[in-house]
Amino acid sequence: MSAIPLVSISRLTKHFGGLTAVQDLTFDLHPGEILALIGPNGAGKTTTFNLVAGVFAPGEGSIALGGERIDGLPVHAIAARGLMRTFQHNMPFAGMSLTDNILVGCHTRCSDSLFDILIGRRRVRRRETAARLRAAELIKFVGLQDRIDDDVSALSFGEGRLLELARALAGEPRVILLDEPAAGLTQPEMTRLGAIIRDIAARGVAVLLIEHDMHFLLPLAHRVVVLNFGRKIAEGTPEAIVRDRQVIEAYLGEAVGDLAMRPASA
């Protein structure tokens, strides 16, 4: 694990009206690391994700990617700098083929001018060929090669998840954000997903994920950041986290049902 952080989040704060969704949040993410963000509903996990991905601009604090400030940049500009994400609910491009869905992920790697496309520049053709090779590879990597000719709306929920993952990977990201990747998956699908995520991290990609399923998460994550009411209440290895009293009280204890009563903050 590298000592220089790839993503640095520093003193991040976001209010929605009178509600504080994220308060004074600071953590780093290193290349090749799998970092999990956990916490009860409304703790600010999804808000943090949206801040990092550029959906909202933070009220205070900063986010840096590879030393460059990215807070306040639009979503597509952050993605183009190598930060890709998946969504909590699958969002395939329903009118496009499976391969084209993944090729969309390559967009930042092959965005040529219309003129270059029209005159058929060699660079354009070379990039297109490379992108298609990469898409084919990724389809195999996530194991969707048998569904290549099928309508993407015909994919199962789990297959849709894998498609989203392959699509995000197609952009050759340095950081990948996974929003509850295991939710709704069957046990065998979860096992496969865990292996794929480990594989991604092993290639040096930093993985930041939100997850509720502790059985999936604890063996997978290198480090865990726990949020409650928008604040970081603990950070450490999974082993340390499960022993942390504050965490047990806030989240892992029996009181989970009560926590769901708190106002959901986006």
Partner: peptide, 18 residues
């Protein structure tokens, strides 16, 4: 592909760097 992606889901398209 970017055009079709925006047609199908503009939010996801932006997240892909479009």
């Amino acid at each position: 592909r970017a055009c079709r992606a925006i047609r199908d889901n503009a939010v996801a398209a932006a997240a892909m760097g479009i």
